[in-house]
Design a protein around this nucleic acid. Structure first.
Length: 246
DNA sequence: CTCCGGGTAA
DNA sequence: TTACCCGGAG
């Protein structure tokens, strides 16, 4: 029996099928991005930070220039703040650059100049939150660390046909749990995490998802229900309550 | 033109 | 919960 899920009764077989179909697609369709050609945690960290709130096409040039000037944690830690900001100019969210600089110094001081592989240690660094910590831990160190960001929230909410707003804490808990559930027990979490993000980015797109070419369509509850255009549900409009009668 | 999304920190 | 900053959407 292919696991149905009225209330998320997904069995082990479902996750195995999920990973097999996902990875077959990813091996064939992934973009050859520079930060995927490396397992250097520093490079992955820089790319993930730049990719927050900034799109791939823009990041490419900045990424290359930044790493040429600051090839290592040590080089960045020793840099002048103004030069870091200069290399960041045009990307916006300059706090990201300041945090990067500060965190590099924290890594030198507390971790001997190498980024830690542990999620909690990563998250204690400036500018590294739950997502980025999971990304570094899984991509660079292949730790079994879940990640959740805009693309995977959309993908997962469709797969599970979640029909309540994403920002509810209850929904976030469910999505983070699912993000962990899809990870293999031994190795390969980094590849799975990269693959779900790539699928969300290229196929399970916001407005017109390409369900006909989605490797997970047969596992997708929203697709099964014809709800892929209705999910994720739009965020509740700010409602003003009428005070008139009070 | 205005509005809105999006990781992190406060 | 909001600001940060920019690009994409309306």
């Amino acid at each position: 029996m292919p696991s149905q899920n009225s209330c998320d009764q997904l069995d082990a077989g479902w996750f195995i099928t999920f990973r097999r179909q996902l990875m077959r697609w990813y091996r064939k369709h992934q973009r050859p991005l520079p930060w995927r050609q490396t397992d250097d945690a520093y490079r992955i960290w820089i790319s993930e930070t730049m990719l927050q709130q900034t799109q791939v096409a823009t990041v490419l040039d900045y990424y290359s220039r930044f790493l040429q000037r600051f090839p290592t944690v040590l080089a960045l830690a020793a840099a002048d703040t103004q030069e870091v900001l200069q290399l960041w100019a045009g990307l916006g969210y300059y706090r990201r650059a300041r945090n990067l600089h500060q965190a590099a110094q924290q890594v030198v001081e507390h971790h001997g100049g190498s980024l830690p592989s542990n999620v909690d240690a990563l998250q204690s660094l400036a500018g590294i939150g739950r997502y980025t910590a999971g990304a570094i831990a899984s991509f660079a160190f292949d730790r079994r660390a879940p990640i959740l960001e805009a693309n995977t929230q959309r993908l997962f909410s469709r797969l599970l046909a979640i029909q309540i707003p994403l920002q509810l804490s209850q929904t976030q808990r469910r999505l983070w749990q699912f993000a962990e559930d899809i990870l293999p027990s031994r190795s390969g979490s980094g590849q799975i995490n990269q693959a779900v993000m790539e699928l969300g980015s290229l196929v399970c797109t916001p407005q017109t998802p390409s369900c006909s070419s989605c490797p997970l369509a047969d596992l997708c509850a929203a697709y099964r229900l014809g709800l892929q255009l209705k999910i994720p549900v739009p965020k509740p409009k700010p409602s003003f309550q009428s005070v008139v009668h009070v």
